[in-house]
């Protein structure tokens, strides 16, 4: 009996093969249609979603990085601008101040010159007056001294000559 049974270990049972073909074909069909299709599709769908999410995140990060860089650049530019404006303003102010100073100086110089001229003129007139005064005074004095010796015309000539000989100032 043992030999018979031992043979049965290696002897394919035709009936079992028949059933097994049916069972496995059914299994293939049922699982293929109702299990593997949804499962495998869902798995690849999920993988794609995860991949897409990762890519999107990477992209967003890259974008953020770019935006940051851009912002930084804009900030630097704005700073540069501000500095230039400030510099310009400072330069302009400096220029205005210098001009103002120059103008003021010029006016002062002008006023000085005018004043000098005025003084000169006044001095000239005063000298003139003084000369006249001195001439008259001298004449009168001389008249009083030389009342009778000299006529008036000779007197004048003498005094004038004297005055001519006087230093200018």
């Amino acid at each position: 009996m043992d030999i018979i049974v031992a043979q049965s270990l290696l002897e394919p049972n035709a009936g079992l093969i028949f059933y097994k073909v049916i069972v496995f074909a059914l299994l293939l069909f049922v699982l293929g249609k109702y299990a593997w299709k949804p499962i495998v599709n869902a798995l690849s769908e999920r993988e794609e979603t995860i991949d897409a999410s990762l890519r999107k995140a990477e992209q967003a990060l890259e974008e953020a990085r770019q935006t940051g860089a851009k912002n930084e650049e804009a900030r630097r530019e704005a700073e540069e601008n501000a500095r230039r404006v400030l510099q310009d303003a400072r330069a302009a102010a400096e220029r205005v101040r210098a001009e103002e100073l120059e103008k003021t100086r010029a006016r002062i110089r002008q006023m000085q010159e005018q004043a000098q001229a005025e003084i000169e003129r006044e001095k000239e007139r005063a000298l003139e007056e003084l000369r006249d005064e001195v001439a008259g005074l001298a004449i009168r004095t001389a008249e009083q001294i030389l009342e009778e010796t000299l006529d008036a015309d000779r007197h004048r000539k003498m005094v004038d000559r004297f005055i001519e000989q006087l230093p200018r100032n």
Binding site: L9, P12, A14, L16, I17, K20, V21, F24
Partner: peptide, 8 residues
């Protein structure tokens, strides 16, 4: 069973 594995 050999029949099963042969079928597979």
């Amino acid at each position: 069973n050999v029949a099963v594995t042969f079928t597979l």
